[in-house]
Design a protein around this nucleic acid. Structure first.
Lengths: 223, 223
DNA sequence: CTGTCAAGATATCTTCGTAATTAATGGTTA
DNA sequence: TAACCATTAATTACGAAGATATCTTGACAG
């Protein structure tokens, strides 16, 4: 498959190599990637679906303004980080988590079912069991935040997991396996305890504390 | 363009007419819409970009599990509401706004520039000028919430406008031009005042109040 | 007799080169 | 000046050939 064609063009747009408003030279891209028009066309169709390009007869295929790009799309987020780390985007991402996740925790405290709490407990256990295995720790962390969003029983909130997922992946890449100074389990357990106690305010507070710790870790190690 | 082909197939998937995991009969769709394979293929490529379908050689093109759909995508949101109003999704949407917008207001209180505040004031003025013109009122409302997100200077938060936009459009459709009982300007002005005063907590509270009022209006009129 | 494995057949997606359609452009005429 | 029509550059659509992963079949070993 020529799946990499999409990715390369996307990254050129995201990095500004293909500026907003500029028209793409289809023929040049065709010869560069050595693919048929159909292949290129389908790649551009994917980017069009994500609001990054638009095609009009006689005017050509051009890059849409950045304001129209689906930055909340999982693919777009990954493409952004794939080439080079973008500190500002990472900060935006963490900031969004800082808003969404405490709210989600609060909601989960009201809505969580027994099964939801069990899933959170399981993620907690996996986190404890991970120990020094960085990859397992990241997986458990992701499972925890996924379970939290699922516990809100709000489909749109659940889809925010693409943002959290990318944030965790990027954080993991930045700290490069270097674990946080202190055990992550207690801060996570505090969230679960608050949810089990059906205390929305406490759940939100615990989650804010958790996120602050996580971000401080990155700032310390990354600097 | 056969843009409607995408929309029809998308809606069939979203409504469950094409169940998760089921494989699509390409030939049947081709004859039904009377389009070539290429056209159908590009339509499916768009849906694939939004995580709704996947194609594998020999296995066919099948509907991906609902958990993979990009529900935060503007097109997907519109398609969901296009056919029939989905109360639960509307509630989810409002709930998400209830989490994101107070947080955004709080952030805006810290970050907003003079220009941002001016934009909020302009939206406020437009809202006052709209009077009984429902369409102008909706436009001003949208402009206000857009300006608020922009004032956070967080690109990802700004992109949440697709969610807010859909929410407002659907609310407008539900109340069908029937304006809220009381003037919307004061509640909105309270948010701007708090931002101008650089008071994050007050901004968040004012926004929560605003959203509660808006939702109550819908609940009252919609019932 | 049963389970495992490998090689071939096949259904489906994928790609190609060419023809048709579209809309912006520039010149012409009333 | 304004409306209209031919030109033309680009997207859009087509039908057929190519590639690929899956399924089937058969043989072999346990």
């Amino acid at each position: 498959m020529h799946g990499q064609t999409v990715e390369v063009i996307a990254q050129r747009i995201l990095t500004g190599q293909f500026a907003e408003g500029s028209t793409l030279d289809i023929t040049a891209l065709q010869t560069e990637f050595d693919v048929s028009l159909t292949v290129l066309r389908e790649a551009l169709k994917v980017l069009a679906a994500k609001g990054m390009v638009d095609a009009r007869p006689k005017r050509g295929t051009f890059v849409r303004p950045r304001a129209d790009w689906s930055l909340l799309d999982g693919d777009v987020l990954r493409w952004q980080f794939a080439r080079s780390a973008q500190p500002s985007l990472f900060e935006d991402l963490h900031e969004l988590r800082g808003i969404v996740e405490p709210g989600a925790a609060s909601l989960a405290a009201v809505r969580a079912s027994e099964a939801d709490v069990a899933a959170l407990d399981a993620a907690l256990a996996a986190m404890a069991a991970a120990g020094t295995d960085a990859s397992a720790a990241v997986a458990a962390d992701l499972a925890f935040h996924r379970a939290l969003l699922a516990a809100t029983h709000n489909e749109l909130l659940v889809r925010m997991e693409v943002v959290i997922e990318t944030g965790l992946a990027e954080r993991d890449r930045m700290v490069h396996g270097a674990l946080g100074t202190d055990d992550p389990v207690p801060s996570h357990r505090a969230v679960v305890d608050a949810i089990r106690a059906r205390d929305p305010g406490a759940a939100a507070s615990a989650m804010r504390l958790l996120l602050k710790k996580a971000f401080d870790d990155v700032a310390r190690i990354g600097s």
